[in-house]
Design a protein around this nucleic acid. Structure first.
Lengths: 195, 195
DNA sequence: ATACTGAATATTTTATTGATTATTCATTAT
DNA sequence: ATAATGAATAATCAATAAAATATTCAGTAT
């Protein structure tokens, strides 16, 4: 067990509190208490509470991106399979978080309206993963399309409801899965030459 | 200028108030006052305020559906053109309403969380218009697809961000238009035989 | 009977206050 | 200098009271 520097210690304490009691209900004093320091001292390392949240949210989103990256770089899958897995991963991640860990959703929600850049950057990462997939498909000639940037944006847009936590209460997971499947089929139809 | 029956008179007064001051800030007493009757009398014609709102929201959504129907039944357009016009109409409608008439958005918002059936039925109407378009395309052989229901659902899902008022603040109209265009191109790619 | 009303009640909003919490800062410890 | 603190201030939240509003109903007018 390696020593943690102060910022990491703070983040660890905050993460524990946030995931147990939620972002809004944990106080700076509590985080500081867990680190055996005063609340004032937290401000030496983070500008404010929101920044602590942003650091953690970012960490969480980076993990998600990593999961998606594994799919994109999994050489045992065809590009079509990758796209499908990609979409389902996003859907399940969003749904699961909303459904079973409302505490993390609370953090994401706070970021969505108080730190939109964080979410924006994640959206950007997803876009670039899709772009990567399209590049691969070009190399092996699996998909065909005119404009790679436009196509990546189209896919990203078409699947965007699957990463909006707000939408999750509108349908059951099964309904979403059917929708995801339908969209995926149609997208692949557009990407795959039937020539 | 033809005479209005009492329910229509009430709806007209309510519509004027709602679009000028918003759903939440207009009172039953005010609506009644505009109709020269007591608030109590409104309840002879509508169960409650929400029902008045629902009637108007419905009217508004039906108008929108009518606009969409005109596009779908416009014989001067190819199915591809119809799909594009359909998507752009929805986008502009949603964006415009959110942007320039927040009062109506307020009504829609109230319906979304207190009368979800109203919105659900509108979603259904859009789905069936898409279905209709797909049928047409089948007849003239413009598009080709395996499962019409699945395809209609896929299209409806892929374009769904364009009718979510909540999403509108996230991008400018120009950005949305680019996205709509990209999605449309990709969908058409999937629907049109390149044979 | 049908259309309506005023007054009574129930529900929802709004305003006010007090308490909690975030943030700053002057100061202390190492 | 760097790390930390306690106490002061500012911003936010929660509880409550007050006011406004929705809804009901017993009763009046036609």
């Amino acid at each position: 067990m390696t020593e943690l520097d102060t910022p990491s210690q703070i983040l660890a304490a905050a993460e524990a509190r946030f995931s147990l009691y939620g972002y809004n209900k944990t106080t700076m004093a509590e985080i500081a208490g867990d680190c055996n320091m005063s609340a004032a001292n937290l401000y030496r390392y983070f500008e404010n509470k929101l920044d602590i949240g942003a650091a953690l949210a970012n960490q969480c989103l980076v993990e998600k991106e990593h999961g998606l990256e594994l799919i994109i770089t999994d050489d045992s899958k065809s590009c079509a399979e990758k796209l499908q897995a990609f979409i389902l991963y996003i859907l399940h991640y969003t749904y699961h978080h909303f459904d079973t860990s409302p505490k993390i959703s609370e953090l994401i929600e706070a970021m969505t309206d108080q730190r939109p850049e964080v979410m924006q950057s994640h959206r950007q990462s997803k876009l670039s993963l899709i772009h990567q997939l399209l590049e691969q498909s070009q190399e092996i000639g699996e998909f065909s399309f005119a404009d790679i940037d436009q196509t990546a944006e189209a896919i990203n847009t078409a699947i965007s409801i699957f990463y909006l936590p707000t939408i999750m209460p509108m349908f059951t997971l099964e309904e979403f899965e059917r929708k995801a499947d339908a969209v995926c089929t149609l997208l692949l139809n557009g990407l795959t030459h039937s020539g």
